[in-house]
Simulated assay, not measured.
Amino acid sequence: MHELSLMASVMDIAREELSRHGAHRLTLLRIRHGVLDQVQPDAMRMAFEAMTKGTPDEGAKLELVEEPLRLSCCLCGHEFTPDDRNALYAPCPACGETVPFSVIGGEGIFLDHLEAE
């Protein structure tokens, strides 16, 4: 379950931000994650609850926002949002060529927003 280590990293960053701003309690944590990262929301929530239980952050709200896959054709430059990940191996919808695509969205995990007291 890679969600536990992901959440541990995000919580480390959140705690650094809280400390930097003199806050003591996390009330909201919003994480953006790309569809290619295959994050399991239920596992992320369980990890978050486990890491905040018995701490001042217990009861904080977790928001998970999944970013869709966005690709750019390396030949014609057409940018598009496919319906599924298999589009990585399909022809370009604009030029019809089977060439590599650049991933321009839908991968990565980011601490997007936090609120604290």
Results as ranks from 00 to 15, higher is better:
Ala90Lys: 13
Ala87Arg: 06
Leu62Met: 13
Cys74Phe: 02
Leu64Gln: 04
Arg32Asn: 09
Phe101Trp: 10
Arg15Thr: 09
Glu63Gln: 11
Phe80Glu: 08
Gly96Phe: 11
Asp57Lys: 05
Arg20Gly: 06
Glu17Thr: 05
Leu36Gly: 08
Cys92Val: 12
Phe80Leu: 08
Ala116Asn: 12
Glu3Met: 10
Leu114Glu: 01
Leu18Ala: 11
Ser9Gly: 14
Cys73Gly: 02
His33Arg: 05
Val10Ser: 04
Gly34Gln: 01
Asp84Asn: 15
His33Asp: 06
Glu117Tyr: 00
Arg85Val: 14
Pro68Arg: 09
Ala94Lys: 11
Phe110Gly: 01
Ala50Arg: 08
Arg30Lys: 14
His78Gly: 02
Ser9His: 13
Gly34Ile: 01
Leu111Met: 13
Ile104Lys: 12
Pro41Met: 09
Thr27Phe: 12
Gly106Cys: 07
Pro91Lys: 04
Leu26Trp: 02
Ala43Glu: 02
Ala50Pro: 01
His113Met: 08
Ile13Arg: 09
Pro82Glu: 01
Met51Thr: 01
Arg32Phe: 09
Lys61Tyr: 05
His24Met: 07
His33Tyr: 15
Leu18His: 13
Leu62Gln: 12
Ala23Gly: 13
Glu67Gly: 04
Glu107Ser: 14
Gly22Thr: 02
Arg30Leu: 09
Gly105Lys: 04
Ile104Val: 15
Met51Tyr: 09
Val103Asp: 02
Glu117Ser: 06
Pro56Cys: 06
Arg25Val: 00
Ala23Val: 00
Asp84Arg: 05
Leu28Met: 03
Pro91Leu: 08
Ser102Ile: 03
Gly54Glu: 02
Glu66Phe: 01
Ala23Asp: 11
Phe80Ile: 05
Arg15Glu: 12
Met11Ser: 06
Leu69Cys: 10
Asp83Trp: 02
Glu66Asp: 07
Val39Glu: 07
Lys61Glu: 15
Phe80Tyr: 14
Asp42Ile: 00
Arg85Leu: 08
Gln38Leu: 10
His24Pro: 00
Glu117Gly: 08
Gly105Glu: 08
Asp112Arg: 14
Asp112Met: 09
Asp84Phe: 07
Arg85Asn: 09
Glu3Trp: 12
Arg45Lys: 07
Leu6Asn: 06
Asp42Val: 03
Glu58Tyr: 10
Leu4Cys: 01
His33Phe: 15
Ile109Tyr: 03
Tyr89Val: 04
Asp12Arg: 15
Gly22Tyr: 12
Glu49Thr: 13
Ser9Trp: 05
Cys76Gln: 08
Arg45Val: 00
Glu63Leu: 12
His78Arg: 02
Ala50Gly: 04
Glu66Leu: 05
Ala23Lys: 15
Glu117Thr: 03
Ala50Phe: 08
Met1Ile: 11
Val99Ala: 13
Asp57Gln: 04
Ala43His: 10
Asp42Lys: 04
Ala47Thr: 04
Glu115Pro: 00
Met1Gly: 15
His24Leu: 09
Ser19Phe: 00
Leu114Asp: 02
Leu114Met: 15
Asp37Ser: 09
Gln40Tyr: 07
Cys76Met: 12
Leu75Arg: 14
Pro82Phe: 00
Glu58Ala: 14
Leu4Ala: 13
Leu36Phe: 06
Asp37Lys: 04
Gly22Phe: 03
Arg30Thr: 14
Cys73Thr: 01
Ala47Trp: 05
Cys92Phe: 10
Ala50Lys: 04
His24Thr: 06
Pro91Ile: 01
Thr55Lys: 11
